[in-house]
């Protein structure tokens, strides 16, 4: 389970941003690809556990999964890969290059100032 490592990295970054702006974090949006081995529930559980007693306690985490893109070698178009049936959605070709999966990103933090 490397969700703990991801949670620690998130907590560190969010805490630093919030204290730099003298504000309290109440929510954050994270994005990742479809192939990243991060389980949403496990990540929320890990984050809640380590956020206890810190200014990040009770924060809402929103996790968005971006579809993995392929580039068709036949018609040259980019398309979203459906992993149960990996082929070009335009021409149906199975000859495609896999574009890099979206990395795990901290996109946005919602802050509250008193």
């Amino acid at each position: 389970m490397h969700e703990m490592m991801v949670a620690e990295s998130l907590l560190k970054t969010i805490s630093a941003e919030a204290s730099r702006r003298n504000a309290r974090p109440i929510g954050a949006t994270i994005s990742c690809g479809t192939l990243n081995a991060v389980n949403d529930e496990t990540l929320r559980f890990a984050f809640d556990a380590i956020a206890k007693g810190t200014p990040c306690e009770d924060m809402r985490l929103q996790i968005e999964h971006k579809p993995t893109q392929g580039k068709c070698r036949k018609c040259d178009r980019d398309f979203e890969i459906e992993f149960s049936q990996p082929k070009c959605t335009d021409c149906g070709s199975e000859d495609f290059a896999l574009l890099p999966d979206a990395p795990l990103m901290l996109e946005e933090i919602e802050l509250e100032t008193d």
Partner: peptide, 14 residues
């Protein structure tokens, strides 16, 4: 409430 765009990779230390 304020929304701050961060856009930082999470595993960038690795």
């Amino acid at each position: 409430m304020e929304k701050v765009r961060v856009g930082k990779k999470i595993l960038d230390e690795n």
